[in-house]
Write a protein that binds this DNA or RNA. Structure first.
Length: 436
RNA sequence: GGAGGAUUCGCCUAGUGGCCUAUGGCGCUCGCUUGGAAAGCGAGUUGGGGGCAACCCCUCGCGGGUUCAAAUCCCGCAUCCUCCGCCA
């Protein structure tokens, strides 16, 4: 949700943002019309309500007199009751009109995406800016072998079972087995410790949430088709622990002194992947379920940009620790989620695809989510909506793909990055003995 | 799944249709007092919306309803507690 003041006072700013996103600019004027109608009706209601209250207050004492046998007030009382009755009808009608205008304004409001940052590159999916490139993809040719893809490596190592995933659950499902299962657990443990050292509180959040949590984080807008819904219970499966982490402080007023509050959530992530038919159909690059360690910060709006950089630095540091070559992108306006004003993606090199693929993503959502979730902070001076930021630390499937493919050797074995060795207890993942 | 009970300001609590424009205590903040502190005394202390302002309106778990008038009566829902059943 946007700040209504922004729309009332600087509509051109909102229009410019809508334009940069390729969204509808006319919503701005439509909202302003609905809002001014609401304000008018609201003021009218308030005035009438005040009158009604005064009228009602006169009735009580008179009724007391009438009850004690004083018949001189009966006529006056009747007159008052008649007026009050009429007033109540009028009030109901005004309230209905007011509520209608309010609902209309709210409807339009919920369609606004956050105001893009002025520094965000303008354009669509392809218009990202490459901020930096870290590490260098391995030259497998000079090493004398053709790199295998993660599907083949997964088979050789007994780490990933895609066929049985499909048998049991359908396409885009998989089993992690043996060293694959242990690899994920090691990565999770490493990520959690890493995040804890960086000041994030480890959290295991629920991965089923109520509509208001989903709604509040902005996932029931354009992204709604990608969300699993359980109609029997009206619960949603989260696509990221960003949802339960953001909603953690829903309807709360935090002490300004406590900020920033940082959490690292580990949860499964469920995505319907509607509309991505034909993309990444093989392997585990794009799946309906994966596990992820996600960083989430609540901070002052003024500190949000710095916190965003901080989260990005942590993501980079983690990828460096895994010895993965990657690049950092500044995502363009048209490719931002509705909550974000700016987004950085880290893309790791995937040898089998000869390209960089997204492994982490961090967004600055300023007060867009906190307004919807009613999360504020209170200092002695004021009560304000907090800024929220999120960033992937470790998405298991894609991280596993990157590790297997980048660190593979000619025989299919995989060298475990040094930083991960203590968590995995292995220096090399070796092919299964019975595998040719 | 079944049966009861609860939900009022940070915490505890009063409140069975109009005098609730919500008690009282604790805590907290400020002031007086003091060399300084404690005690004592006094004031303040839920959020939100509209209005240039004076001020007005909303907010007693949430949503409806009854009524001229609802913290209070009625209906639905949520959460928590107790007991029974089931269960990792």
């Amino acid at each position: 949700m946007l700040d209504p003041k922004l729309l009332r006072e600087t509509p051109d700013l909102v229009k410019a943002s809508q334009k940069a996103r390729g969204a509808d600019e006319s919503m701005v004027d439509a909202w302003i019309a609905a809002d001014s109608r609401w304000r008018e009706l609201n003021a009218a209601y308030d005035t009438k309500r005040a009158e009604q209250k005064n009228l009602s207050k006169e009735i009580g004492p008179l009724q007391g007199k009438a009850k004690s046998g004083d018949e001189s007030v009966t006529a006056q009382l009747e007159e008052l009751m008649k007026n009050a009755s009429r007033m109540a009808d009028d009030l109901t009608k005004t309230a209905e009109a007011r509520d209608k205008a309010e609902a209309e304004a709210a409807q339009i409001m919920s369609g606004f995406a956050n105001i893009v940052d002025v520094v965000t590159p303008v354009g669509g999916e392809e218009d990202f800016k490459i901020i930096e490139t870290v590490g260098k993809p391995k030259d497998f040719k000079s090493l004398g072998f053709q790199p295998k893809d993660h599907i083949e490596l997964g088979q050789i190592l007994g780490a990933i079972d895609i066929e049985r995933g499909a048998k049991v659950s359908g396409s885009r499902f998989y089993y992690l087995t043996g060293p694959g299962a242990l690899l994920e657990l090691a990565l999770v443990r490493m990520a959690m410790e890493f995040a804890t050292k960086a000041g994030f509180t480890p959290v295991l959040p629920p991965s089923l949430v109520r509509p208001q949590a989903m709604e509040g984080t902005g996932f029931l807008g354009q992204a709604a088709v990608d969300v699993y819904h359980l109609p029997a219970d009206d619960l949603y499966l989260v696509g990221t622990s960003e949802v339960p982490l953001a909603a953690f402080h829903m309807d709360e007023i935090l002490e300004a002194k406590q900020l920033p509050l940082r959490y690292a959530g580990f949860s499964p992530c469920f995505r319907r992947e509607a509309g991505s038919h034909g993309k990444d159909t093989k392997g585990i690059m794009r799946v309906h379920w994966f596990d992820k360690v996600e960083m989430f910060s609540f901070c002052n709006l003024n500190d949000a940009a710095a916190e965003h950089q901080r989260i990005l630095e942590l993501e980079k540091e983690f990828l460096k620790a895994l010895e993965l070559p990657f690049r950092v992108l500044d995502i363009a306006t048209g490719d931002l989620g509705s909550s974000a004003i700016r987004k950085f993606d880290c893309e790791a090199w995937i040898p089998s695809q000869n390209t960089y693929r997204e492994v982490t993503s961090t967004s600055n959502c300023t007060t867009y989510q906190s307004r919807r979730l009613r999360i504020r902070s209170k200092s002695s001076e004021s009560t304000e909506f907090v800024a929220t930021l999120n960033g992937t630390l470790m998405a298991s499937t894609r991280t596993i793909v990157a590790i297997l493919e980048n660190h593979q050797q000619a025989d299919g074995s995989v060298v475990v990055p040094k930083a991960l060795v203590p968590y995995l207890g292995l220096e090399v993942i070796k092919p299964l003995a019975n595998n040719a």
